[in-house]
Write a protein that binds this DNA or RNA. Structure first.
Length: 476
DNA sequence: TGAAATGTTGGGGCG
DNA sequence: ACGCCCCAACATTTC
């Protein structure tokens, strides 16, 4: 009788340390570590190009960590696993749970099928501090608002130690039917991803170096500094977290050694915003594509494709908005404050459906995450459960003057404005002709004129939102 | 994790 | 010295 093998199914947990499924799988021995690129099941949530680039790099790192013994497959995960159980005597399949609705559906089926065939299937929590179903209000319904949700988590969260990096065997099971990483075709054809190389270090080592860099530098000024895109006061851990190169528990544990309670508290809160997004996605699986407040189903969105394109390209004529959109394109990332400003501009000043903004971010972000991206866009648009008030409309001029007063960030991404004095940086159309000439700027040519009037578009948005608010009250 | 409009206060100029 | 106006600066309200 052949000895049964154990499958460790990696997906959004591309790390060895504090990986509960991997640690458990190692206990069983005769390990086949696999990764499946499932392009059959995600439907409309096909991974974006930037995210694919990251995944490729991260898989390469993980494969190196297990001495090239990670086995790659592509196709429908259910069939791939069924096929493996045909060709091998499989005793046990391990994985860490994932929370996208299509993955929950898929994994539930797989678990059921395996068990029916007498194969053990065990999943773990390697991704969240709390399982979404474990936190409910007294009446057993899920929290809709962040603050009470967070308060409740703080009450029950115990400090738990991350698992140590396990020792893994030199030789794991081989499978001749597996394909090389390159055949997953994750890298863009036209070297578009190469520009990301200088900004990021995907993989478990890169994740920990980002964490330590943040703990030693950015964190001490996090509370104030995180609002200033020119400062390096943010963690940039989001893509690492998305792919599970580091766990929230490891991050929280890293915070324990830091004395500064105030900044620590504010950063920890952001980890819980991530948790809250996953929580919402679990309890409201329509989060990515439906307004949670149904009054927004009749919202008068503009369908002007031209303005959407100008926003995407960073050609709105509002320098802070354009700088953010170009940061996104160039680096696959955008500073959080600037994400709010660019999103507010699209949804409120341009009146373009938040789902189109979410789609663009989804394609461009290396940290594209269905839970966080959808949750945050619903928040900005005001149609989420816990949403930004409808009248909160960011003024990209004021925001620039307040949060990038020297223009360091803005000029970095808009070199065509580098010689424009601070006084006019966020409103170049107000600059006198001689100032523009001296700065080598021809408005409408070297840099666009504003595509909407900020005051008029603000009033237009307020009117549209007031109408929706009324319908909402009517619907109860 | 806003912004603009409106209201209030208090100091200085000036008849 | 006094009252009046002007207008920042700050506070409150409204969207």
């Amino acid at each position: 009788m052949k000895k049964a093998i154990t499958i460790m199914w990696f997906e959004q947990d591309l790390r060895l340390a504090d990986n509960p499924a991997f640690s458990a799988a190692l206990q069983q021995g005769d390990l086949l570590p696999i990764f499946i690129l499932d392009h059959k099941n995600p439907g409309i949530y096909q991974q974006g190009a930037a995210s694919k680039w990251w995944l490729h790099q991260s898989l390469a790192q993980l494969n190196q960590q297990v001495h090239g013994q990670l086995r790659f497959y592509t196709g429908d995960a259910k069939s791939v696993i069924a096929d493996l159980t045909q060709r091998f005597k499989v005793g046990h399949v391990f994985w860490n749970r994932r929370y996208e609705p299509w993955r929950i559906f898929r994994d539930t089926e797989i678990k059921k099928t395996l068990r029916e065939r007498g194969i053990a299937a065990t999943s773990f929590n390697g991704t969240l501090l709390n399982e979404p179903w474990s936190i409910v209000k007294h009446d057993q319904t899920p929290y809709k608002v962040f603050t009470p949700y967070h308060r409740q988590c703080a009450k029950i969260d115990l400090e738990s130690q991350p698992l140590p990096t396990p020792v893994f065997p030199d030789a794991m099971i081989n499978d001749d039917c597996a394909i090389p990483l390159e055949d997953l075709s994750l890298l863009p054809r036209h070297k578009w991803g190469e520009k990301f190389d200088k900004h990021w270090q995907p993989g478990e080592a890169g994740a920990h170096s980002a964490l330590h860099n943040f703990l030693n530098n950015g964190l001490k000024n996090y509370k104030e500094g995180r609002d200033f895109p020119a400062l390096e006061s943010i963690s940039t851990l989001s893509p690492h977290l998305h792919f599970g190169e580091i766990s929230p528990r490891q991050i929280q544990n890293g915070l324990l050694s830091v004395m500064d309670d105030n900044n620590k508290e504010h950063f920890s809160r952001e980890l819980y915003w991530r948790e809250f997004s996953y929580y919402q996605l679990y309890h409201w699986p329509d989060l990515p594509h439906k307004n949670l407040k149904t009054a927004f189903d009749h919202f008068p969105w503009k369908t002007d494709c031209n303005n959407l394109t100008l926003w995407q390209k960073g050609l709105t004529g509002y320098p802070l908005v354009d700088a953010g959109m170009r940061e996104l394109w160039q680096t696959g990332f955008m500073h959080n404050r600037v994400r709010m400003i660019t999103a507010s501009f699209l949804v409120k000043n341009l009146l373009i459906d938040w789902r189109l903004g979410a789609k663009w971010f989804w394609d461009c972000l290396v940290d594209a995450d269905l839970a966080s991206n959808s949750g945050n866009w619903q928040w900005v648009a005001g149609c989420g459960t816990d949403a930004s008030p409808y009248f909160r409309i960011f003024n990209p001029i004021t925001q620039g003057e307040k949060f990038d007063p020297q223009g360091t960030y803005t000029r970095h991404y808009l070199p065509e404005l580098k010689d424009l004095p601070n006084k006019y940086l966020y409103k170049p159309w107000e600059a006198p002709a001689d100032v523009l000439e001296k700065a080598n700027i021809t408005l409408g040519k070297t840099y666009p004129l504003p595509i909407v009037d900020i005051k008029a578009s603000r009033e237009r948005a307020l009117a549209a939102y007031a109408q929706t608010k009324q319908e909402q009250a009517f619907e109860g």
